[in-house]
């Protein structure tokens, strides 16, 4: 029980590390995912092919392999960055493939007539996109993007095994200090539950506010 109170700062550092990793990777994944989704629905063939290849490869890559390649491979090209940055790159790229698919299927659920009606009213492409398509797509996209971000938070545990400061990695230090291993893990599990349930609650609030069943 007192594993937590005795090692408050250690757990705190790990917890914040996981939160930090999750937030930065989420941002990277959302930006990259949006970019790839726009590639995948673009009327330009080579961009579509690039987006498709990106998604097909990254969705089928084991995350451990990606971490292995990025964290241990990129330094061989003379790219020296903190491990946390490498972890954010790996997690962000991996998750971007799933975000891309969620966004794309969201865009595809907007009926074609909506775009046609907008254009026949004389709206330009950017107006159609900003006022008609994206607001409708946003509503359907919320739940899948939310669950992808939860998966991202859970996947960040892998970073700990590659010596990035995060929640799961704290077990090693605590183990060496001779604390009860069971309780150590109970508090780690609780930490992850707090993070995933927070994301879940946030998505639920957003969904109540914006989501419309269609």
């Amino acid at each position: 029980m007192d594993v937590l109170t005795d090692n408050w700062s250690l757990y705190g550092d790990g917890f914040l590390g996981t939160v930090e990793l999750t937030v930065y990777s989420s941002l990277l994944a959302l930006v990259l995912g949006f970019l790839m989704a726009s590639f995948r629905v673009a009327p330009v063939g080579s961009l579509r092919a690039f987006g498709t290849a990106w998604v097909a490869v990254l969705r089928n890559t084991p995350l451990t392999l990606l971490f292995f390649a990025v964290l241990l491979g990129l330094p061989r090209f003379g790219l020296v960055l903190p491990f946390t940055v490498f972890a954010v790159i790996a997690l962000g790229c991996y998750t971007s493939a799933f975000i891309c698919e969620a966004l794309r299927s969201g865009i595809n659920t907007v009926p074609r007539g909506q775009g046609e009606a907008a254009r026949s009213l004389g709206m330009t492409f950017s107006q159609t996109l900003a006022a008609i398509v994206l607001p409708q797509a946003f509503r359907t996209v919320l739940p899948p993007v939310g669950s992808t971000l939860i998966a991202l938070a859970k996947n960040s545990a892998i970073a700990g095994a590659f010596s990035v400061t995060e929640l799961l990695g704290t077990y090693r230090t605590l183990n060496e200090l001779g604390h009860s291993i069971i309780w150590t893990f109970v508090w780690i599990a609780l930490g992850y539950l707090i993070i995933t349930l927070t994301i879940s609650a946030a998505v639920n609030v957003l969904e109540k506010r914006w989501g419309v069943p269609r």
Partner: peptide, 30 residues
């Protein structure tokens, strides 16, 4: 191209030329 999305109209000849130009440019970039 972009089947069944609400995003684009069916391209006319000028748009198609523009798309080809974009295509060449992005292929070169990739």
């Amino acid at each position: 191209t972009a089947t069944a999305t609400a995003l684009y109209d069916i391209p006319g000849p000028r748009t198609r030329r523009r798309h080809v130009a974009y295509g060449v440019l992005s292929t070169l970039l990739i």
